[in-house]
Design a protein around this nucleic acid. Structure first.
Lengths: 343, 343
DNA sequence: GTACAGTGGTGAATCGTTCCAGACCGTACT
DNA sequence: AGTACGGTCTGGAACGATTCACCACTGTAC
């Protein structure tokens, strides 16, 4: 392997390795003349710093780990873009892990991040990983929770108000006159799911009741949504809901497929609203109403919190940034189905 | 920082550091008794190996770098999932970079990967990075090209037959009687775009001609697609195409929005076909015809090629796996618009 | 009684950086 | 002249794992 190291560079430039290191790290202690000799040598040898050695010496890497629930969900890739953008501006990079809502995979990635001594970690947890996160912090890797707050007063967090979002959805469904509502969600172990459901229940009770049928799917994919939709269609007509609130847009799109496939009209027979307002919600077969979350802004905020903690140490008190969700109405819950133009 | 190292473990277990290392690496030279003493000590101290030190000594990491054109495009996340799956089975992990079709970002990520001494690299290149890739290989990081083949006989590659795919699309449009076709693509610097266009032209000529209007957008996003669609709508009626082939589904969905927004009927006024068959193509406003590529399988194949080269060294001759695309017909090119049910 | 093989374990060298105490030099101040 | 000082640069000690030559011991064969 023809790998030039810093010593080779030093030899060619006729300086010490310390000086080369100073050039690499832009320390001000190098005269322009020697600096250019060094950079020439670097160029000539095709030298690229070995990050492992640097990390070993410094004790930490310049990469940040991020663990998301599902890379196939555009919401998370949008958050990740916000994160990446902010990190890049601070000369840091991102290594992205996908837990796929699986606690074991999550643990495997945490092992990886810990072995890599990432300089910080952004995570939307699946399992009960609080002790692991504490340990990571003890090791010097601050942790910021993304879209997960509850019971984590000792971590900074960025999230959106899921209870409010759930309430917005149900208020809207009630507002268009629906009375038999259903909630299609993922595992209740996932906090967002729980909160969105709670918000929905609260709104429902405030409006004077009505049943809320809850369908809990093992994952929050479009495939799961289709299954959930079929399940609801199997109900006796009288029990069949006239409005469905899905815990995310992927589920909602799956439900929509099941409904239209069975020949039902959305929203006339059943109204449907999702969550996240992913890009594809607006362009789906029946443009989908949804609860919008500012994904990229959340990513940026999370990255900024993390960088602050990496660079300045633990804050006096942990911060919890809460974004407000927003109702976006499209055809799938539009009362009057005459104007069927996508927004 | 309370970070136990291998020496602390050795001291607690009353063995040498070499023995601890043997336990960590599952070398067979350790008796069950000492092994359990060591694992107990590891447990007690919460020891986690420092990967930087390991890498430094071994000269290479166990992570693989992957560079994609656009993380927001579901096609690429599907490929990435296939890759990740295969890597995980070989106890390797993935660090994902997003060039966002930007040559500068691509170079930045290549720097990062090179500094990290990734054990291998999967890349869908944007700019002219052949020399960089050669250098990476010289450094001991094999490179496999994903979805990019041409002129790279000295790298293994996995791709789909883009010329064939382009031909399939145009043959289909001609088959449903369209005569004024347009191609909406990204920069011709991107090889897939060029090949899909070439395939389209070939098919068109074979069928006896007709014009093919080419719209070249700077990126291949849905936003760009919308702009392209508006551009085509500005044409004098006589010049307006009656069929559009978009170089990917994101573009196609954007075009679709522009068309339906202006009140035109798809496919009656203008037929539309995309490329990739991403999940959301089937559930879009007008279900979108597309050219399907086996994304996950491509990812798996690429990862396997790469792992083979990492573990066994350069192959006798580089392999080029070529997947065949497949035409998927949905409403956006359906001749008879009566049965408007999504498939 | 010696040679030999095999097993389980040791300890020091090594990987390529960063960091720091100090050397060296010329200039400014007392 | 002597001292102080800032600016450059040097050389060597870390960082924490892996690896490898070697050692100690046991049992077995001759």
């Amino acid at each position: 392997m023809v790998t030039a190291n810093i010593r080779d560079v030093a030899a060619l430039a006729k300086v010490s390795v310390g000086t080369v290191s100073n050039v690499l790290n832009k320390s001000k202690k190098v005269s322009p003349a020697t600096e250019s000799r060094v950079t020439d040598a670097i160029e000539a040898l095709g030298f690229v710093r070995n990050d492992a050695a640097r990390q070993l010496r410094v004790g930490q890497s310049r990469t940040v780990g991020m663990m998301v629930l599902d890379v196939r969900n555009p919401f998370f890739t949008d958050v990740a873009r916000g994160v990446e953008e902010t990190l890049a501006a601070h000369a840091r990079s991102l290594i992205l892990g996908n837990s796929a809502e699986d606690a074991q995979r999550e643990l495997d990635y945490l092992d990886l991040f810990e072995e890599q001594r990432v300089s910080g970690l952004l995570i939307t947890p699946v399992g009960d990983v609080a002790p692991r996160l504490e340990r990571l912090r003890k090791r010097g890797s601050p942790v910021v929770l993304v879209d997960r707050y509850e019971g984590a007063a000792n971590f900074s967090s960025v999230s959106a108000d899921d209870r409010r979002g759930g309430a917005l959805a149900l208020e809207h469904l009630i507002g268009i006159g629906r009375v038999r509502t259903a909630f299609v969600g993922g595992p209740q172990a996932i906090m967002q799911v729980r909160h969105r459901l709670e918000g929905a229940r609260t709104a429902l009770e405030a409006a004077g009741g009505g049943p809320l049928r809850v369908v809990e799917m093992p994952t929050m994919s479009a495939e799961a949504g289709r299954t959930a939709g079929e399940q609801l269609l199997d109900l006796p007509i009288g029990d069949r809901p006239d409005a469905i609130f899905a815990a995310n847009d992927l589920l909602a799109l799956g439900v929509l497929q099941a409904l239209t496939h069975s020949g039902l009209s959305v929203p006339d027979d059943i109204a449907l609203i999702g969550y996240d307002d992913i890009y594809f919600a607006a362009s789906s077969a029946i443009p989908l109403s949804s609860i919008r979350q500012p994904a990229q802004a959340m990513g940026r905020a999370a990255a900024e919190l993390l960088i602050a903690e990496i660079e300045d140490g633990p804050p006096a008190h942990y911060e919890h940034v809460l974004f407000q969700p927003e109702l976006v109405i499209r055809d799938s819950t539009r009362r009057n189905n005459a104007a069927t133009r996508a927004e």
